[in-house]
Design a protein around this nucleic acid. Structure first.
Length: 445
RNA sequence: GCCGCUAUCGUCCAGGGGACUAGGACGCCGCCCUCUCACGGCGGAAACCCGGGUUCGAAUCCCGGUAGCGGUACCA
């Protein structure tokens, strides 16, 4: 694969959402897979909506995802002088003209002419700058995913490429910046497909060879509607807060809109770099289904070493000394956020709010079993897994009870709920004195 | 309205003229394992949007319809 120069060009009008994260990932995979370069450009020409906080947040999200760029970030507004230069040239050689026509004027014009003729302004000495679209012919977008798409010039309006105050607009700045950065492949969301002919016309006016394009299908919420805050973890920040691992998010996002001929589901990032092929990206919009991400994250969590898991858990919860609890919880959690609800009782004491569990297991029989357990555990000399298990099984045998009639009361005594890691492991981690004290309390309560 | 893109299980992806009795994964259901919840194992239900055409043969190619989405900004 020849070295590619790709770019990720988010606009800092909000947090980086998963659609943007996927675009960044695909670009990054293409760059890494080809020995190429990924450029990060911040499309901040909308001064009203762009904020430095959003830029920081996007950078932070990219860093967390492990998708850092090779060049940039470069601010689009910082390039305004260059935009002015190209603008002057286009004005001088007649590729563009000034016009005071407003959006309202265009609308009226369109209402009259329908699809017969796109809006063509009359050159004036002031106003916004519009690009001349040829009267006939067509512009063809060569798209790696969708093939060729033809746009007839008669359907296109002369696009405004700079405001009345002279500042560049997106469809112009993006073409100039991509051309100057020698971008070879523009990979971005499908919402840009209809704008591509305008950008292509800017390349023509500049006399520059355009890059290849690949327009990614859009990402939708679980309900098939456009992704928004009400869809839960729709931004990278929210994914992080929900306790997902970057590697799992990369794997999941890679498969949301792409798959190759084998049916592998768990694919490491290295493998992704090797296998990803933008031409195989799906054409249909995909829904973001957090259930599958949860499952996948659980798989990644279980592949972590105990050291890694402990470090991640401690960073996530802000607590220390989690190693032993991490070990006994790993088969039971799917996200880092699942850990504390499952294991918090080890450190903070039994949950107090599960009346149902107490009612069901701390019955007279349950408390009698706890009294026996307390005696059996008091008698053992070493607080290790084997001794604990032997002691508890002894109680089961002597009471001629079913295992759960002994174990569940112990679980509720320790955790306050009916769900916890394995009971022997839990006793072991909670420790002898604390375990005995909780059992005594529950037995007499 | 106009321009454009898209259409395979509930979801994501594979299959792109005969190998399709349509494959894998998540989810769901059942069974096994089992001290709870999980993990793991085994099994199951579950889809080619509709209508024409081309062809000996269509999920696959073509046309139309429908639906969804995008664009149609002095937003990006």
């Amino acid at each position: 694969m020849p070295a590619m120069r790709v770019r990720f060009a988010p606009s800092p009008t909000g947090a980086l959402h998963i659609g943007g994260a996927r675009a960044a990932l695909y670009n990054w995979l293409m760059a890494r897979g080809s020995g190429g370069t990924m450029v990060l450009r911040i499309e901040d020409t909308d001064r009203e909506r762009s904020t430095p906080e959003n830029v920081e947040q996007i950078l932070d999200a990219l860093r967390w995802l492990g998708l850092e760029a090779d060049e940039g970030p470069i601010s689009q507004v910082a390039r305004s002088e260059r935009h002015q230069e190209v603008l002057r040239r286009l004005l001088d050689d007649g590729h563009a003209y000034r016009s005071t026509a407003t959006g309202e004027d265009v609308k009226v014009y369109k209402a009259q002419h329908g699809a017969d003729r796109g809006f063509r302004g009359t050159p004036e000495n002031e106003g916004a700058v519009r690009l001349h679209v040829p009267g006939d012919g067509a512009t063809v977008v060569h798209d790696l995913i969708r093939g060729d798409t033809t746009f007839q010039h008669v359907h296109l309006d002369d696009p405004v490429i700079a405001r009345g105050d002279g500042t560049a607009l997106y469809n112009f700045a993006v073409a100039v910046d991509d051309a100057d950065a020698a971008i070879t492949h523009v990979v971005r969301g499908e919402d840009h497909l209809s704008n591509t002919p305008k950008q292509l016309l800017v390349y023509v006016a500049m006399g520059v060879q355009p890059p290849l394009f690949a327009h990614l299908p859009l990402l939708l919420g679980p309900d098939g509607k456009k992704l928004s805050k009400r869809h839960g973890a729709a931004s990278v920040q929210e994914l992080r807060d929900a306790g997902y691992l970057p590697a799992a998010v990369r794997n999941y996002l890679a498969l949301l809109g792409w798959g190759d001929s084998d049916d592998e589901t768990l694919i490491s990032t290295d493998e992704l770099v090797r296998r990803f092929d933008v031409a195989r990206v799906s054409k249909n919009p995909a829904r973001f289904d957090e259930q599958k991400l949860r499952w996948m994250n659980g798989r990644y969590l279980r592949e972590l070493s105990l050291d890694e898991l402990t470090a991640d858990l401690e960073a996530f919860t802000g607590r220390e000394g989690l190693r032993a609890a991490a070990e006994i919880s790993r088969e039971k959690i799917q996200t880092l956020a699942d850990f504390w609800p499952l294991c918090g009782f080890i450190f903070d004491g039994p949950a107090q709010d599960d009346e149902k569990a107490r009612g069901k297991w701390l019955t007279d029989a349950g408390r009698a079993a706890l009294t026996d357990v307390h005696a059996a555990l008091t008698a053992i000399t070493a607080w290790d897994l084997a001794s604990i298990e032997t002691a508890l099984q002894g109680v089961v045998a002597s009471r001629e009870a079913k295992p759960k009639d002994v174990f569940q009361p112990v679980r509720v005594a320790l955790a306050g709920t009916a769900v916890s890691p394995g009971i022997f492991e839990t006793l072991h981690v909670v420790g002898r004195d604390e375990s005995l004290s909780r059992i005594r309390a529950a037995a007499s309560g």
